[in-house]
Write a protein that binds this DNA or RNA. Structure first.
Length: 470
DNA sequence: TCCTCTCTCACATTTGAATCGG
DNA sequence: ACCGATTCAAATGTGAGAGAGG
């Protein structure tokens, strides 16, 4: 096994700009606050190493992505989006009781952005109750036509949430993006659970899996399963402590940690204190020390994350159109492949500097002000209720061919050759190197995406809107 | 050929939305 | 309009087995 850090060192780049957060302050237009609900549950999973099943027809996440928002302008309209970002450029395998790096990541599948079905809706709507992305589904089917988020099995991801102040999907591109991530939400995509402790946790907490609980009617099944597990483990030569560990603690396997500790042991030492902090959090934690992430306050029931904003480049392709195109002609495998390994990679080359440096955004700053922008409680409030906005989105889709709509499609490294999802397909494995500012931010407590996209090339590293579902 | 790893599928069970009738 | 019962689609992990790759 190649040590994680060794591998990762291949991706090491310039350190993330420390000034980004400060720079973003200047752009902050509001104090939007996003809080992750069920934080304790997420933490519990995270401590073990969250796994999310991905299937061809699509599988919901558990725990669900449930958030609460505050600081929105009650009568301004917002769009909520979520996408999945690779944690790193590696593929993993489950070896006995721990995750190990199994090589470099596969080319990133077509990146898709899930649009919350209520979008757009007034700030008051988002703030009056928690926002759930219950319907969001993960799939490993790269040809998926249902709008599920496509992931690779045995790869690590974390969700990224975007709050966009926009009256409708047309104005998204002029709008300000506020992006949030939660360290506790990182997970490994799998087609079958690897860590039995995760299975246990899922069964214990997911109501749909009640039938598998010990006290349930499925005792026999589980008994058999347990026996099988024991037999299997008996075959394992070198995990003498595993069973006892697992049985002792209601679940919380330090074994994953152990695995990572071991892995870490082979590597050059880092800041010990950081490592300790991180280990309390996740078996993955020790890998993410570079950003100097600090632990969230103990005892918090929710995790608050402040935002930064991202300016959507006006030139940027408006992805719902691609959704339209996608819908019309499902992306053929060739398209996907080429988007990932072909142009996608070529593009990565050009993007790297954008990732690693903090561009001056003078040009983008005025844009936020110039933008027609969403109305603020003005008379032009749209009359459509939240439910009707799917119609808006569909209308958007239907108008995809109109001049002046698609006409804004200025930048795309893939545009002519790859009219489908590949256009905005996310970065390949190395496009999310450990020093990716996002990743770095992710490791920091603030999870404050101090990123500005002053030009489209920068923006293009974000897979937003490659697909929207509603 | 064998082995390992990953993935797929059918299954039993549960939940929750939709429907229907009182 | 409301409420309770019923129906049915969707969601869940399990476990066997297929298939690819070394």
């Amino acid at each position: 096994m190649q040590s994680i850090r060794d591998l990762k060192s291949n991706f090491s780049g310039p350190p993330p700009p420390t000034s980004m957060a400060a720079a973003s302050e200047a752009y902050l237009q509001g104090n939007i606050r996003m809080t992750l609900e069920d934080l304790e549950l997420w933490k519990t999973f995270h401590e073990i190493g969250t796994e999310m099943i991905i299937t061809k027809p699509g599988r919901r996440m558990f725990p669900h992505c449930k958030l609460s928002l505050s600081g929105l302008i009650p009568c301004a309209k917002y769009i909520l989006l979520v996408d999945m970002v690779p944690e790193d450029g590696f593929r993993y395998k489950w070896n006995k009781d721990k995750w190990e790096v199994a090589g470099k990541a596969e080319p990133h599948p077509p990146c898709r952005t899930y649009l919350h079905p209520d979008s757009p809706a007034p700030g008051s709507h988002w703030m009056k109750q928690s926002v759930s992305f219950l319907k969001l589904k993960l799939t490993n089917n790269t040809l998926d036509q249902h709008g599920h988020i496509i992931l690779h099995s045995m790869h690590r991801y974390h969700p990224r949430f975007h709050v966009v102040q926009a009256d409708d999907l047309f104005s998204v591109r002029w709008s300000v993006f506020q992006t949030f991530t939660f360290p506790e939400m990182s997970f490994t995509a799998v087609t079958a659970y690897q860590n039995t402790k995760i299975t246990r946790l899922k069964i214990d907490h997911n109501p749909f899996a009640k039938g598998f609980r010990d006290e349930g009617t499925n005792k026999k099944r589980r008994a058999n399963k347990n026996q099988t597990c024991v037999e299997k483990r008996a075959k394992m030569p070198d995990n003498p402590n595993q069973n006892s560990k697992e049985d002792d603690s209601p679940g919380f396997c330090q074994s994953s940690y152990d695995g990572y500790d071991r892995a870490e042991g082979e590597l050059p030492k880092r800041k010990d204190e950081d490592a300790v902090k991180e280990e309390r959090y996740s078996p993955w934690g020790a890998e993410r020390q570079q950003g100097g992430r600090t632990e969230s306050p103990a005892g918090m029931d929710t995790r608050d994350v402040y935002n930064s904003e991202q300016l959507v480049p006006a030139q940027g392709s408006y992805q719902p159109y691609r959704a339209h195109e996608y819908g019309k002609s499902p992306s053929p495998p060739s398209s996907i492949g080429s988007s990932n390994s072909g142009s996608g990679r070529g593009c990565f080359e050009s993007r790297v500097p954008d990732v690693a440096t903090v561009p001056d955004h003078d040009s983008s700053k005025p844009r936020a002000h110039e933008a027609p922008g969403p109305s603020h409680c003005g008379p032009q409030q749209h009359l459509l209720g939240p439910q009707d906005y799917s119609g808006v989105l569909n209308m958007t889709v239907a108008q995809a061919g109109k001049p002046g709509v698609l006409g804004h499609h200025i930048y795309s490294p893939y545009s002519a050759e790859q009219p489908l999802v590949g256009q905005w397909s996310g970065p390949g494995p190395s496009q999310y190197p450990p020093h990716h500012p996002l990743t770095t931010d992710y490791t920091s407590q603030a999870v404050h995406h101090g990123y500005h996209h002053g030009n489209v090339a920068e923006w293009s590293q974000y897979p937003l809107f490659s697909y929207s579902c509603w």
